[in-house]
Design a binder for these strands. Structure first.
Lengths: 210, 210
DNA sequence: CTAAATTTTAAACATGCGTTTTAATCTATA
DNA sequence: TATAGATTAAAACGCATGTTTAAAATTTAG
């Protein structure tokens, strides 16, 4: 009774797992099509190129994540007093909602985001600004509202420091969790790393500039 | 009167520039040997493999940076009251001292470090721990001294958040500086980005854990 | 049911990579 | 200067990649 999965979706499902684990450049079309149990040429037939496949993989998550984030930010925007911490907490629910896309979706998305920023720097930023520019601006506005003393330039840089710490944590996450488990006996799930990350980020953004 | 530059050094000089700009995987031996005006086979003759070349490039900087950092940390260690900020400031002079290695050395080193961590995660960490493990431990000790309330696990994670923000900033640095210049009219040098980064990092490390 | 369109398949293509080989050339020493 | 050793040079090797081709199979429509 299970509905037949289209070749296109089989490719997307296999690709996002491999991309999230090994990155984009390190994942070959042959790995993907083998894992998807699909012919090699079908990637180019359905998506045109590897680059387009990468975009399609990211798009499937951004379509869910971005509107959910916009909702959270809008809801929080009306609050009279707003802390940086509260703004970052806006990311939690949209991230969790990615479980709808697939089991383990939140972790997969974070890894994809990390690799996307690390490997294809310009492209993703351009894509996000093009498709979700208004949401990015909303985020900037809310962050400024929470931290009015910070100049726009300072906020710009700190937002990217935040992104850097987040992205790096995700990309190096598995290795670091392993080390932490070995050295401190505490084995953390990916979500718990985020729990430790958010106070750090909020503290950084709230720091006095200079 | 200029002393003849050895093939080995010509390769190192060309390689570190290309690595710093495009990363390791994205830089081919042919690009390097062409830029160095040297035969393709000479890389394998002098270094054995591309991986060994990468290591040699990093080693040349670490040999200068790490002892200088150790000096700074030792000097600061004796202070009765020590702030996180002061610990991070320990990185400034060793970083600047890399100008000795070559003009623009500080920026090159930071980029190399960024790509090294982003692309060959495990290897660099292993190399540093193996060759400079004592200095890493000194850093941990001094950081703990500055922030005794933080548990070792928390410190471990925050140190890697710091690394992430730093590394990412360096890898994406050129693109971000360009955007900042276009959007805010402020063109920052790479060093000035570090000036903005350090307060952020200190604020993050000093944040109350939850 | 048949014809047209879509999709799948296997094979080859073109390219770029790190590395190896083998011979030529340079360099230092006796 | 003659010779042994170190270095450079050109070419090719073996392999993996993304992509294209052209025929076969399947699905869709009339």
């Amino acid at each position: 009774m299970a509905k037949r999965i289209s070749t296109k979706d089989k490719i997307l499902n296999a690709a996002e797992l491999l991309f999230a684990e090994h990155g984009y450049e390190q994942t070959s079309l042959r790995q993907i099509t083998t894992a998807a149990d699909v012919n090699l040429a079908s990637v180019n037939y359905h998506f045109g190129s590897k680059k387009s496949l990468i975009q399609a993989v990211m798009a499937r998550y951004l379509e869910v994540f971005m509107p959910a984030l916009a909702n959270q930010l809008s809801a929080v925007q009306v609050r009279p007093q707003l802390s940086t911490r509260e703004v970052f907490d806006c990311f939690r629910e949209p991230l969790r909602s990615l479980s709808q896309v697939r089991r383990g979706g939140p972790t997969i998305f974070m890894s994809l985001l990390g690799f996307a920023y690390a490997e294809i720097q310009g492209h993703l930023r351009r894509y996000i600004l093009e498709h979700y520019g208004d949401i990015v601006q909303l985020l900037m506005a809310v962050l400024h509202q929470a931290n009015p003393k910070l100049s726009p330039v300072d906020m710009f840089w700190r937002l990217h420091f935040v992104l850097g710490a987040t992205v790096f944590t995700q990309v190096s996450g598995p290795a670091l969790r392993e080390i932490a488990a070995a050295d401190f006996g505490e084995h953390l799930a990916a979500d718990e790393v985020v729990d430790r990350l958010i106070p750090f980020l909020a503290g950084g953004v709230d720091a006095a500039p200079l």
